[in-house]
Design a protein around this nucleic acid. Sequence first.
DNA 1: GTGAAAGCGCTAACAC
DNA 2: GTGTTAGCGCTTTCAC
Lengths: 352, 352
Amino acid sequence: MIKPVTVYDIAKEANVSVATVSRVLNNSAPVKESTREKIAGIIAKHQFQPNALARSLFKKETGMIGIILPDITNPFFPEVLSGLDIEARSKGYTFFLCDSVSSNRDFTEQYDRETRFLNILMEKQVDGIVLIGGRINLAKPSKEMVQEVVEAGKRVPVLLINGNLPGASLHRVAVDEKKGAELAARHLVELGHRNIAFIGGFKQMSNTIQRIQGFRNVLRESGIKERSDWIRTGGFSVAQGIELAEELLQLPIGERPTALQCANDLVAIGALKAARREGISVPEQLSIVGFDDIPFAAHSIPELTTVSLKCHEVGRTAAGVMDKLITRTKVAKTTILSPELVVRESTAPPAV
Amino acid sequence: MIKPVTVYDIAKEANVSVATVSRVLNNSAPVKESTREKIAGIIAKHQFQPNALARSLFKKETGMIGIILPDITNPFFPEVLSGLDIEARSKGYTFFLCDSVSSNRDFTEQYDRETRFLNILMEKQVDGIVLIGGRINLAKPSKEMVQEVVEAGKRVPVLLINGNLPGASLHRVAVDEKKGAELAARHLVELGHRNIAFIGGFKQMSNTIQRIQGFRNVLRESGIKERSDWIRTGGFSVAQGIELAEELLQLPIGERPTALQCANDLVAIGALKAARREGISVPEQLSIVGFDDIPFAAHSIPELTTVSLKCHEVGRTAAGVMDKLITRTKVAKTTILSPELVVRESTAPPAV
DNA sequence: GTGAAAGCGCTAACAC
DNA sequence: GTGTTAGCGCTTTCAC
């Protein structure tokens, strides 16, 4: 590795002081054109790159935004990340990515990792931290889990995406999930379904609770009797979707649901697979609605009717809010976006 | 925001010098048990977090690995990222993510962004840079594109994943793509197909060239006549897959391919959709093979036969190599992994 | 076992 | 317009 060049080296070679070098580097004060050119030439010649560590140490800003998410492999996250990135990049920020996923799907381990990441990010002096997924989706996070984030929030701007921490009063950007679930359920009801089940998610998570709440609201207002055994949680993965759907679809034809509302698109894709395995055609014999609208929702066969969480827009919005937080511009504490029903091919009126 | 606590604050409160505080922070020298405890107590009380910027400035290491990739939204990348992350994390590294995607699919813009990211990462003093996708997949990158990376490589360890830069002689971890394509083609030939087309990819990219090369090798050795109009490139997306497949599938039944080898899984999924649109059943009337083995390959209907690029393993391996590079341990310049054919449901003997 | 002091590479007063 | 200098917060010789 080559020995790094510093402002001093440049200054010496140009017969000027480091201050002048710094001035041309940052355009922070007028410099005589001829010396500026000389310095610029030397900088270019050595391909000099100022040490951002030193600069940040002094300026107390790094231009880095830390982001803690639970699993980059879940397509939902890259989608919002991408929105965040595009918007934040235009404002000069770069990203510090922390994936708290645990190899063995152990939540405790995941939350521990979140804590560690929170600390690492603060030590690295990021300008802001955004949290998405993980503990902020817990309906009843422990006191410490909340406290840690609150403490972090005292030192650096913290923004929560699609989640919350009861009693923490942090800035948030979120999509109204209950409303999203209502959209989905209402669509099913309007198609004529009366035997609808909800599958997927984790019942200890607030996102799941809200989605189920929306679902039940619509059933109730439609005068459909509730069946607690038709609300089955267990996970957000395709594998879980297959399993949960199978349980329901193996019931005799008259006694099984004619429509499945899923906690997310992954589960819906699992349901699609389960239906196929059972020889049930979608949407003719079974309607399926997803949630999130990840890209693959449009690519499955049949294409998934789903609720768009506008991942990209959420990301962009979050980046905007974060920037305001960092620059101490006034922003609303909570920004709620509206979900949207996307009707594609996986839903139809029930078979008669 | 709270005023940050420094080692000086801790030192003063403990009536010791900053040196001692630093010693307990890093366990870098023996400290009397009683004073250690006192200091630890004060640190805990203030939730003191040492400023990593200052530390790194001195130590000349940041524990950060920069990663430049072309589009986090393409599921292939999160997959290898995840492998990288898990492995690198266990060694104490964290990630700096740079997504060079351009909103308008403009490659020039993308390469420019790569250049900018390369510089940003060096300024931030990352311990290493890994490049995946983008310019390193170009068959004929410009002199400058190569030179920039070579220059970076003189200042900080650079690792290329699944690509190369002619004449650059950088460390690489890659999967043998030509062999992968041969695996796929051979599978099709062994099933009895003689009318096979290749779709997808960009013909200016080395990964595409290699995949086509492997494909043609097998056709040739199987005595199948080549049809240059049955090799169609144009992109790596689902949309492109649909388009390219449509063109071929609209040919009259005797004159169209009985099997499609795709440049990647996304294109294969597009092909699946095109087939369905044309009322052609897969695999009965048309076999389709993908490439990469992204998670969704196993989730499509029918499940995709594909070539596994072992994304996760590639990531883990890369993390290992990067660590060695950083710690100046000897490592092979090139690590080649073997792809694997994964036979699922989208391939079958041709209809008679 | 502990402290004083130098220095990592940069920026920004403050002088001139 | 330009130079001098004092930090930013940390680690680490080198004394004691």
